[in-house]
Design a protein around this nucleic acid. Structure first.
Lengths: 251, 251
DNA sequence: GACATTTGTTCGTATAACGCACAAAGTCGA
DNA sequence: TCGACTTTGTGCGTTATACGAACAAATGTC
């Protein structure tokens, strides 16, 4: 791609949108400038543009994003066959299991939730489509990493900050690679409170008709309710069922 | 705002993202150009920029959005207190009612789902955070429109294409205004198969501590399962309960 | 297989955005 | 209330981008 085929004004604007986040629901021009590392004048123009287009509100001091910004993500969710195809199966699965079920894909070092059916809230953090978790310590992340060539999986791990969220979190790259190998062999991944204490989950890959892994499917449950060791016998058959039902639906 | 405070390259790029949608999961440069009304060269640069940043994939012919684009919507969902505060209550409500429950806000002539808990799928269309429905024929839309000053509500209706989705859809502006008046009086709205045959729903406004309407909450049910006339006695108490529980949580 | 049409790309130029520097306004503590 | 500090708004020269048209490539049609 040539230099001139890149619209830096657009790229800068997107960076500004991403500056908003959990910790930063409202941003002043200077704050946004610090977060993005862009010039204040540039950030100001981007924010005023967002405001002019109705993607943001401006009270003269702080900018906040408006729900219109969801149109951007929605363009993906409705445009991509995956979430639409998957949702009804997910609802069924969630109901049968009595636990929340989710589907995610890999984006860099993180898994991104693209669909979710929740029976009840099991985590301290609130998950929804678009939510992200580090791949190395999430059941769906393990499954998705296991589907990659070893070198690529290792590369992703090397780019990840492997921190111990709980005492049980596996953070040693070699141990994780061995775990990925096991996941690849058995066709599912189990996480026992590696992401958050009190939460365990089990995931399987979703494959298309040609056997390529296109996403991951999981069921999460409170550890107090279901021990990690029970996950396999209780939920794996249900997951396999959904996995098989979905397989012919992906091109 | 001055002319020069508007970054048109950014605005154009956002328009290009929005060109993707249910009917258009994959776009060629020319297609995107036609949808957006922008010059082909401009669209091309925007798309190549998206691709360069990882927000889109390019196979040499078609562009598709990647899950990374969800970061943009997620910036709003996680930055806004509303979805996070509401979700656990929504899950509870949905479980108690045995039906799907949602929260939405108004964006122009449409309601935008910001949170959702689904027990089972009741609609032909798949709803998720970011999904949109025309306000005039949705229960949450009625509630949100009823919360506006009459002139503003009338203005929104005048900008809406009032089409009859089903034989029961109300499309006469005067009738709708009268309905909004009723909704304002009784504090809830009931929709009986106006959006889709076989689907009815009931909604109440969510207010902050000062009594300002900040969102709408609804329960949707298959008409075959629950007649519209039963909605009030079966679900209104539950909705009121959640409404009251949430009220002090909004600033 | 040749023609017509659509699509993607390149290029020069007018125009608009960038970022710096300065001015103005607001904020806070003494 | 004052003064120091922070934040926001503006003017301007430089740099980069959008435009439109023209060209090249691919696609579709007879």
């Amino acid at each position: 791609m040539r230099e001139t085929d890149f619209v830096s004004g657009f790229a800068r604007g997107l960076k500004v949108i991403e500056a908003f986040g959990e910790a930063q629901p409202r941003l002043s021009i200077t704050e946004a400038s610090k977060i993005t590392g862009l010039d204040r004048a540039t950030v100001r123009r981007s924010l005023l543009t967002l405001s002019e287009l109705g993607y943001a509100d401006y009270d003269g001091k702080f900018f906040t994003l408006t729900p219109k910004i969801l149109r951007l993500g929605h363009a993906y969710l409705s445009a991509t066959p995956l979430p639409t195809i998957v949702q009804p199966h997910l609802d069924q699965l969630s109901e049968k299991a009595g636990q929340s079920a989710s589907v995610s894909v890999l984006d860099g070092t993180e898994v991104v939730y693209v669909a979710r059916a929740s029976q009840r809230r099991v985590m301290s953090i609130n998950l929804m489509p678009g939510s992200r978790l580090p791949a190395y310590c999430a059941s769906m992340g393990r499954v998705l990493l296991a589907a990659l060539p070893e070198t690529q999986a290792r590369d992703i791990l090397s780019r990840t900050e492997l921190k111990a969220n709980t005492p049980r979190t596996k953070t040693d790259p070699e141990e994780l690679m061995a775990e990925l190998h096991r996941v690849r062999e058995q066709g599912y991944a189990v996480i026992d409170q590696e992401l958050e204490l009190g939460l365990c989950s089990i995931a399987v890959p979703l494959m298309n008709a040609r056997g390529q892994v296109v996403a991951a499917l999981n069921i999460g449950a409170p550890a107090a309710h279901v021990a990690a060791s029970e996950l396999v016998q209780r939920y794996l058959p249900l997951l396999r069922e959904t996995q098989a039902a979905l397989r012919p639906l992906f091109r």
